[in-house]
Amino acid sequence: MIIATNVNKQFGKLRVLNDISVNCNKSQTIALIGPNGSGKTTFIKCLLGMVIPDSGFITVNEKNIARDCQYREHIGYMPQISRFPDNMTIEQVIDMVKDIRGKKSGLDMELVEAFGLPALYKKKMRTLSGGTRQKVSACLAFIFDPAILILDEPTAGLDPISSEVLKEKIMKEKSRGKLTLVTSHVLSDLDDLVTEIIYLQDGSLKLHSSVANLRKDTGEEKLNKVIAKIMREQVK
């Protein structure tokens, strides 16, 4: 569904993405991992058209995304930090995105209900806690039932219960054939979700492999151990 070919990006002198080529398909749940500053978020932003690559191209559903915006209706995005206009209510924010997407029916309100947001609909954004804003943000990603989900550190600001709710939702969507891209550094959280791992370091793609293969190669059962082992190998 997503094919990135030789994607390069430089911020000033800093090379953030170095010749990245990946291929992501339906029903995969991909963990995008790497140390801080490795280019995870930049890569995600490239996929979303928020950062424009210097060279290389990206296709989503076999369509080049350069100078296009329509492809994004297939993507649900949950950013790392969520802030909304102070004086809008939760309902207005959701309505606004609905309006922009032009999609008013066939909405997936499951997560909204699960998070108990309808009770807070009339609350202004500035009165909400960081966790609640994260929940709103998560809902906005899922509500339109998109084929691709891009979640940047989704569980970072959430309490354990909500985190669990979100994980279950991701699982469910995976079973419905969706592609999910997740960046996270708290790996244990995602252990049971992830089917593939993309490992970035200093802007370069170091590893792209299925979890099953990795387990076989490294002989480790726990995912974070697998990763630790890879990292150590990389350092060597």
Partner: peptide, 17 residues
């Protein structure tokens, strides 16, 4: 500036910048 995160979120929606 205060809306920059929100603007980012909107940029990720199917709408021209």
């Amino acid at each position: 500036y205060n809306s920059s995160e929100f603007i980012e979120l909107l940029v990720a929606q199917p709408i021209k910048r």
